[in-house]
Computed example of a mutant assay.
Amino acid sequence: MPDPSQTRFLASARVAPEVFALRPDYRVLLMAADGIEPGPSAPDDEKLMVAAEDAAAQTLADRPFTEVPHVAAWREAYRAFGAKPQRTRNSLEALMRRAATGLPRVNRLTDAYNAISVLHQVPLGGEDLACYQGAPQLIRATGAEPFDTIADGAPVVENPDPGEVVWCDDAGVTCRRWNWRQGRRTALTDTTTSAVFILDALDPMSDDALRAAADGLAKELERLGSNVTVASRVISAA
């Protein structure tokens, strides 16, 4: 049963009207999870990762990355706010490109959501809920918002481009260019016990397919602890 604090956190999340004006077909499913028991990658996680790598290989057996429908839709969305998809790839495309040589093995939590992203062909981000200051907000940036990241191996604070679509909280940007690069402040770690996941959908991905991806993620999260609780919410223009 979801914790009331999870439900309140999700209820406070918002997507700015300017984002829906850019892509009226956009939908996001936000999921909050608590009670996760951190740990290194395990045999069950390896099976899931291999299944995701095999699925990516099958998808790409008869087409290039650019012709995978949901990848192509996100490339169009990036162009709409001025990003160059050849240089800044959406997270789904980036993972599918890596699948050919092996998805990264990080820890149980990160491995699970990366595998679900590839299996269901949906951009999917995971962040440490305990590090949030306020609720998630998807906005078009002014260009003044701080983004805590790493450049050339050192911590730096950058700023998004004006008009760029970014996820943020009250303290600054948590993910740049919709689903391109996550920040350092809210990043998942090997000790994360509560997390928020962001599943981004555009046409032609259906609402049923988005929900199936979320159900798959919830199932994997419930393996990561005996008292895991999960709550979710969909935000759309409708």
Score class of each variant (00 low, 15 high):
residue 154 A to W: 06
residue 163 G to H: 07
residue 185 R to T: 05
residue 5 S to K: 12
residue 199 L to C: 13
residue 223 R to W: 00
residue 22 L to P: 12
residue 157 V to K: 13
residue 159 N to G: 06
residue 66 T to K: 11
residue 24 P to Q: 05
residue 29 L to E: 13
residue 15 V to K: 01
residue 157 V to A: 12
residue 233 R to Y: 04
residue 236 S to E: 02
residue 137 Q to W: 00
residue 201 A to K: 03
residue 84 K to H: 06
residue 21 A to L: 08
residue 117 S to D: 05
residue 32 A to K: 03
residue 190 D to V: 13
residue 180 W to R: 03
residue 82 G to K: 12
residue 184 R to A: 00
residue 95 L to T: 05
residue 208 D to K: 13
residue 237 A to P: 01
residue 187 A to L: 01
residue 154 A to L: 15
residue 58 Q to N: 08
residue 58 Q to I: 06
residue 15 V to S: 01
residue 59 T to I: 14
residue 78 Y to D: 01
residue 233 R to E: 04
residue 31 M to Q: 12
residue 42 A to E: 06
residue 53 E to S: 10
residue 178 W to I: 15
residue 21 A to D: 14
residue 150 I to E: 07
residue 182 Q to E: 12
residue 188 L to V: 09
residue 238 A to T: 13
residue 58 Q to S: 12
residue 203 D to Q: 13
residue 130 A to S: 11
residue 139 I to N: 09
residue 237 A to K: 10
residue 117 S to N: 13
residue 14 R to G: 02
residue 162 P to E: 06
residue 114 N to Y: 14
residue 31 M to H: 05
residue 37 E to K: 15
residue 18 E to H: 03
residue 33 A to Q: 01
residue 27 R to N: 01
residue 173 V to E: 08
residue 208 D to T: 14
residue 2 P to I: 08
residue 10 L to T: 02
residue 59 T to F: 07
residue 227 N to A: 15
residue 163 G to W: 11
residue 2 P to A: 15
residue 62 D to C: 09
residue 79 R to Q: 03
residue 149 T to N: 07
residue 97 R to V: 04
residue 106 V to F: 03
residue 40 P to I: 05
residue 94 A to I: 01
residue 44 D to K: 08
residue 141 A to N: 12
residue 2 P to F: 07
residue 163 G to P: 13
residue 186 T to V: 08
residue 129 L to G: 03
residue 11 A to E: 15
residue 48 L to E: 00
residue 112 A to G: 07
residue 192 T to W: 02
residue 1 M to G: 14
residue 83 A to D: 05
residue 199 L to R: 13
residue 234 V to S: 08
residue 120 H to F: 05
residue 32 A to G: 09
residue 12 S to N: 07
residue 67 E to S: 13
residue 72 A to S: 15
